[in-house]
């Protein structure tokens, strides 16, 4: 592997900066993402537990990608 380029250094710095003492894992995110998205689409408030889902998306591009796909499905199916 080549040394980290500017973009990778920025990404490393960004995820380190975003790191919290307590975070949820990908499987915990998947368990809660349905409730999170339904509340978002209904314009309902997001509590502290669900805010961790939002934070997880800043660190996990895969969960964020799957969230966007789920949003597309819910928007299409109502």
């Amino acid at each position: 592997m080549n040394p980290l380029n500017s973009q990778q250094v920025r990404e490393l710095i960004r995820v380190v900066d975003q790191t919290r003492e307590v975070e949820i894992t990908c499987s915990e995110c998947r368990d809660a993402v349905g409730e999170y998205l339904e509340r978002r689409l209904a314009g309902l408030p997001i509590d502290a537990a669900l805010e961790r889902v939002e934070h997880h998306f800043t660190l996990c591009p895969e969960c964020r990608e799957e969230f966007e796909a789920l949003k597309k499905v819910l928007n299409a199916t109502g």
Partner: peptide
């Protein structure tokens, strides 16, 4: 057993399906 009932069942099922498909594609 992982479905908590805090969302519609189909939303949860779609999330599992999307994860299954994306994991395989990756």
């Amino acid at each position: 057993d992982r479905f908590s009932g805090r969302s519609r069942f189909t939303t949860w099922a779609h999330a599992v399906a999307i994860n299954t498909a994306f994991t395989e594609l990756r």
